[in-house]
Amino acid sequence: MAAGGDHGSPDSYRSPLASRYASPEMCFVFSDRYKFRTWRQLWLWLAEAEQTLGLPITDEQIQEMKSNLENIDFKMAAEEEKRLRHDVMAHVHTFGHCCPKAAGIIHLGATSCYVGDNTDLIILRNALDLLLPKLARVISRLADFAKERASLPTLGFTHFQPAQLTTVGKRCCLWIQDLCMDLQNLKRVRDDLRFRGVKGTTGTQASFLQLFEGDDHKVEQLDKMVTEKAGFKRAFIITGQTYTRKVDIEVLSVLASLGASVHKICTDIRLLANLKEMEEPFEKQQIGSSAMPYKRNPMRSERCCSLARHLMTLVMDPLQTASVQWFERTLDDSANRRICLAEAFLTADTILNTLQNISEGLVVYPKVIERRIRQELPFMATENIIMAMVKAGGSRQDCHEKIRVLSQQAASVVKQEGGDNDLIERIQVDAYFSPIHSQLDHLLDPSSFTGRASQQVQRFLEEEVYPLLKPYESVMKVKAELCL
């Protein structure tokens, strides 16, 4: 049975990233139509530049190519590739079939990587351009969430054990800070992308030097003109047959890092959902379990974690691919890159769409948070109580021993009897502590235990987050809708 299948058929496997999760716009960027249309555009740009620099290419040939950029006979191309065992030459023939007058000058002087690699770089750039505003929107939604809850005390956790208090907004800023680093890295790697350009079979530009009869300047002009037509500021000066596969490492490393950030955020949300302090959106008709109707599973956060793990592992592909590119190139890269580049971007696209949807509907339960604080705060307040007693004339050592005994009794009630923490009640009825009984409410005010959390939130948002989001103001209103 021949390899390949009808990918629109229910009898043929289709990647869930495309069929179930990723956005239509990201799927289109990695589609065959987008790819092969870009090949034709690159052939047109090459012909236009070659004509401008004096090669015998007519206006009629150029116009014929322009008129057929979208006229792609995919069936013919597939048949040609089956016959020739070469995808680029299959599309040269297919393009030439609908451009008979231009057929002889299509791909003039070029090698397969002229269309293959340059198209990949265009796709990487455009895919990054799709991700950047999506990530900015996630940051914006979380920034709104953090600002609104900047002063809401909550129990902090280290080692997932109760620690000092923080605020809900401050905790959210930990998430935002990681995503801001990801946004900066995505922008950097996007701006650092260079075009492969017009380089020939081993990167020496020998074929173009021959076409222009040894004119170095025209060869350099050709490279520059096509690079500018493709919208790049610069091209690699040095290439082998391909652009260095280190570029793929750079791009997928940034995406993998984004995956790590999203995994951490969504894990926190899942843990908070278990504590009943916070939940992701839950639709009115949504079913959490087929057997347990009360369940409210954090399905979206779980999906993000599941896909983020996949995204983090994909960076190993370009690392290994770059390491086995012998001399000017081997074909070890080809099949692998067809999979890992598309999957990385479709996965990143999915987790950003999902995280935006989550961040637009996060639900906080202040009463649950308050109750958990009441359970733990008495123990945390013991040092403040000791200091207040010393100020009232008591002995630190005597007070410490009193607190120690009462704390152990209260802990026994919590752990052995399943009761509430009654340390404060014990202190309130103990005559030894009568000098500070009137101060206990103040000493137990949760806001006095959150330090500068709310001020940190305000400063972080104003100095770091809002300036970073400013270039994306025009796209901030787009909502994230999930079908599944």
Score class of each variant (00 low, 15 high):
I386Y: 04
S112T: 01
K101C: 14
G169R: 02
E401L: 08
G5C: 10
I358Y: 05
G451W: 00
Y466V: 12
E50P: 00
Q161W: 00
V315Q: 08
E70C: 13
A110W: 02
C113L: 06
L108S: 14
D6S: 09
A47I: 05
T354I: 14
P281D: 06
M292L: 03
Y294P: 03
A431D: 13
K199M: 00
H442E: 15
Y243I: 15
E220N: 12
P24G: 10
L179T: 08
L252C: 14
C304M: 14
G200R: 00
A335N: 04
L482E: 08
I287M: 06
V88S: 09
H97A: 10
H97Q: 12
H7I: 12
K75D: 13
P298C: 11
V92G: 09
G259R: 03
T330H: 04
T38H: 06
N185M: 09
K147S: 11
G5Y: 15
R396K: 01
L142E: 05
I269Y: 05
I139L: 12
S140K: 15
K284C: 13
L135G: 09
R171W: 00
M389L: 07
K199W: 03
S447L: 14
G200C: 01
I386R: 04
Q397A: 06
F95L: 07
Q41T: 08
S306C: 02
D430N: 10
E80G: 08
S407W: 03
C99L: 10
D317R: 02
W43M: 06
G169Y: 04
V88K: 00
S359A: 07
K66N: 09
R85T: 02
A453Q: 00
Q177M: 13
P133V: 15
E50M: 07
K218P: 11
F36S: 13
S334E: 02
T201M: 00
Q221L: 12
L461F: 06
G259L: 07
F212K: 04
E417T: 07
E328N: 04
C180A: 09
L314Y: 14
G54E: 11
Q61V: 08
Y21E: 00
I237R: 09
I176A: 08
T382V: 09
Q325N: 15
T166P: 05
T382D: 00
L255K: 03
G393W: 05
P281A: 10
H159Y: 01
A335D: 00
V390I: 11
I123T: 13
S289N: 00
H217I: 12
A335T: 10
C305I: 05
I265S: 11
M278K: 06
A235F: 13
Y34L: 05
L331G: 03
R296N: 10
S31M: 01
F160L: 04
N384V: 08
G240W: 00
